[in-house]
Simulated scan of single mutants.
Amino acid sequence: MTAELSKHMWQQWKEIYCGLFDFVIIGETQARGRPLLEGRCQSTQIILLVQNRFDILFWAQEIDHAAVAEWVGAVNMTLKTMPNVHVVVNNPYEKLYASVKGIDFSEAPLIRPVGVVSVVPNPTFYKQLWDEGALDINPFGQLHLTFHVKDWWKYWDWYHEDFAGLFVYFDSWQHLKEVQDSFDFEAQRSHNLEKMLCYSEDILGWLQYVYGEIVANRMAQSYKY
């Protein structure tokens, strides 16, 4: 979305999104959020759910670096001057990617339910497989960026501290066979369910915090009349 289109959409959206709703959840920051952020929509609570790189629509064969810089500046200005905007990330990699681009999402809550029991290589074995060219799929996007970062595994769903204990790890192909033959998957499934119920409570607590601000704003408005 260009700056010109953003301004055009703002004129169409401002009476709707900034006048009729208590809060708006934007699932793709760049594509859907730019008009509301650059238009300074401050009369409603805005939740930015960053889930697919905040600048994804700038990815092209010929990147407009000036446009990217403009957008990064707009996001940073929003974070500093619009307290009604609340950022959450869908996966830990978003924080790393944003930091490389000059945006600080470090305080953003991570909302990423992980309930299925998955068997995955541990960080050392995964990196070994990648270096050997044994992997032809990449579930985490730009590995060339991630692997050059200290403690890179902290930015991946499989290894992030919030999800510790939810995955079953193997460190070799032989170990994988042993896991398949003897691991207690029923116990792991029960553990994951219990952990995710607690995780859901944390998410609801954060949403209650946002909703509490909505109630406070309503009360403040009522005192004006």
Results as ranks from 00 to 15, higher is better:
residue 16 I to Y: 08
residue 92 P to C: 06
residue 202 D to I: 06
residue 22 D to N: 09
residue 80 K to W: 00
residue 36 L to F: 06
residue 225 Y to P: 15
residue 111 I to D: 01
residue 35 P to N: 00
residue 93 Y to F: 10
residue 53 R to A: 05
residue 15 E to P: 00
residue 25 I to Q: 12
residue 147 F to H: 08
residue 96 L to Q: 12
residue 97 Y to I: 12
residue 62 E to G: 01
residue 41 C to P: 06
residue 10 W to D: 09
residue 67 A to D: 10
residue 15 E to T: 07
residue 102 G to E: 02
residue 158 W to S: 14
residue 117 V to Y: 13
residue 46 I to T: 03
residue 32 R to I: 00
residue 167 F to S: 08
residue 97 Y to V: 13
residue 207 L to T: 07
residue 210 V to G: 01
residue 116 V to C: 07
residue 206 W to K: 11
residue 192 N to K: 08
residue 19 G to P: 05
residue 135 L to M: 14
residue 89 V to A: 07
residue 82 M to Y: 07
residue 60 A to D: 12
residue 128 Q to A: 15
residue 211 Y to K: 14
residue 68 V to H: 09
residue 154 K to T: 09
residue 49 L to F: 13
residue 194 E to V: 14
residue 19 G to Q: 01
residue 58 F to A: 12
residue 31 A to Y: 15
residue 205 G to K: 04
residue 141 G to R: 05
residue 120 V to C: 05
residue 109 P to C: 02
residue 157 D to S: 13
residue 173 W to N: 11
residue 29 T to M: 14
residue 156 W to A: 10
residue 210 V to I: 12
residue 131 D to K: 11
residue 218 R to N: 09
residue 102 G to T: 03
residue 175 H to Y: 02
residue 104 D to N: 10
residue 87 V to T: 03
residue 153 W to F: 08
residue 52 N to K: 09
residue 63 I to M: 09
residue 192 N to D: 04
residue 1 M to Y: 11
residue 9 M to A: 11
residue 202 D to S: 13
residue 160 H to S: 07
residue 130 W to R: 14
residue 212 G to D: 05
residue 172 S to Y: 00
residue 153 W to T: 08
residue 59 W to G: 02
residue 37 L to F: 01
residue 200 S to E: 15
residue 125 F to G: 01
residue 142 Q to G: 04
residue 216 A to S: 10
residue 32 R to D: 12
residue 49 L to A: 10
residue 141 G to A: 01
residue 83 P to A: 03
residue 120 V to A: 04
residue 84 N to M: 02
residue 100 V to N: 03
residue 149 V to F: 05
residue 182 S to A: 13
residue 102 G to I: 00
residue 56 I to H: 05
residue 145 L to K: 02
residue 164 A to S: 13
residue 154 K to A: 13
residue 56 I to T: 08
residue 223 Y to P: 01
residue 118 S to I: 07
residue 120 V to N: 07
residue 123 P to S: 00
residue 209 Y to S: 10
residue 217 N to G: 04
residue 110 L to W: 00
residue 122 N to S: 05
residue 180 Q to R: 09
residue 79 L to Y: 00
residue 115 G to W: 05
residue 96 L to Y: 12
residue 143 L to D: 07
residue 16 I to F: 09
residue 16 I to G: 00
